[in-house]
């Protein structure tokens, strides 16, 4: 287990904060850490900042995340990792980042002047990192229509000419990603998806996060179109923390 002292804390959206800390290890966009609150629990969180200092951006959505969101500058943050593979580095030319919910956090290290973005959230107050993009290159969508397009990421994607993108990077709820995968599959465009499943060990042995025999925590979380084609479980069924199979 590592620990670092939190250098800064910034509220970026409702119940959502970015915590920055020094960590002397290379971290690549798409990788995650298992962040531990002693006595409370441990959860996987993507790195939203991979330079120096490192950072995570986390939303308070329950008992495990609340004590992390409550941490303040000067306090210790305990974590293990970095774990998982990473997104392919964008080539020259334009590329598209699609983040649903907190998904934009793991794509954030790839935001540059060539990056276009679609960020979707439930409501205006849940949106974050819009300001990191050039204004003309980002589309926001909200479920309730309080900001941007009323609808989801796929609704925004349908308004874009995808031919101009070298690559598309997607992170968000699995149902949303399946919709995007199905939409771009016939178009023959390179795309990478960061998958998320209930995760316990993060080191490829407990089988909680597996998809068709592949461990998301170790081989993934980032998979290309070819891998997803073989994943019959992607967007259809998953195992709960007990191991019970349920429909997505």
């Amino acid at each position: 287990m590592n620990f670092s002292i939190i250098l800064s804390k910034e509220v970026v959206a409702k119940n959502t904060v970015t915590l920055k800390f020094s960590f002397d290890k290379r971290v690549y966009a798409g990788q995650f850490a298992m962040v531990w609150t002693p006595g409370k629990g441990e959860i996987p969180i993507s790195f939203s900042h991979t330079g120096d200092p490192k950072g995570i951006t986390i939303k308070n959505y329950g008992d495990m995340s609340a004590p992390i969101v409550a941490l303040n500058a000067g306090e210790r943050i305990f974590f293990r990792g970095p774990y998982g593979n990473s997104f392919t580095k964008p080539k020259d030319g334009d590329y598209l980042l699609i983040g649903g919910g907190s998904g934009i956090a793991s794509l954030a290290p790839m935001i540059s002047k060539n990056a276009h973005g679609i960020i979707s959230a439930r409501s205006m107050e849940d949106l974050f990192f819009l300001d990191k993009f050039e204004k003309s290159k980002v589309i926001a969508t909200t479920d309730d229509g309080s900001f941007g397009i009323k609808g989801n990421a796929l609704d925004a994607l349908r308004t874009l000419d995808l031919e101009k993108f070298q690559n598309i990077y997607v992170c968000g709820p699995e149902k949303m990603m399946k919709g995007i995968y199905d939409y771009i599959k016939p178009k023959n465009i390179a795309a990478e998806f960061s998958l998320e499943r209930p995760m316990k060990c993060a080191i490829g042995i407990c089988d909680s996060c597996s998809v068709n025999g592949i461990q998301i925590c170790k081989t993934g979380p980032v998979f290309g179109m070819d891998s997803l084609r073989d994943f019959t479980e992607f967007g259809t069924t998953r195992l709960m923390l007990s191991g019970k199979r349920v429909n997505i």
Partner: peptide, 8 residues
């Protein structure tokens, strides 16, 4: 170890 999901 890796024996909860049939596919694995």
């Amino acid at each position: 170890i890796l024996d909860e999901n049939g596919y694995t």
